[in-house]
């Protein structure tokens, strides 16, 4: 049976000995900058803000109308 554990398999051991790789500095800088912008919480779109404010106002007005209707 073929062993496939790196510590006792010469083929996997040779693969494990392959040298590592480092991305170029400018690529790293580009990725870090783009990702940092992605991580920053984005402000809400003005239309979305207006929709939320409008629906809250609508709810308050309907509640007021309902309350006034009681008297």
């Amino acid at each position: 049976m073929t062993s496939t554990r790196p510590d006792d398999d010469p083929v996997l051991a040779r693969l494990a000995a392959l040298p590592g790789e480092t991305p170029a500095r400018d690529l790293t800088a580009r990725i870090r900058a783009a990702s940092l912008a992605q991580l920053r919480p984005r402000p809400l779109h003005p239309v979305f803000t207006l929709l939320v404010a409008g629906s809250a106002l609508g709810y308050l007005l309907s509640a007021l109308r309902f309350t006034l209707g009681l008297f």
């Binding site: 790789e21 991305p23 170029a24 580009r30």
Partner: peptide
């Protein structure tokens, strides 16, 4: 980034593609 880049380079056998894919991976992480 180093191990993932090495993996992508050996898998794709193309440096330009490996660089684009590395950017994709870390953008997805962000």
């Amino acid at each position: 980034a180093g191990p993932v880049f090495g993996f992508l380079l050996r898998l794709s056998r193309r440096r330009d593609l490996a660089e684009d894919l590395l950017q994709h991976v870390f953008m997805r992480l962000a």
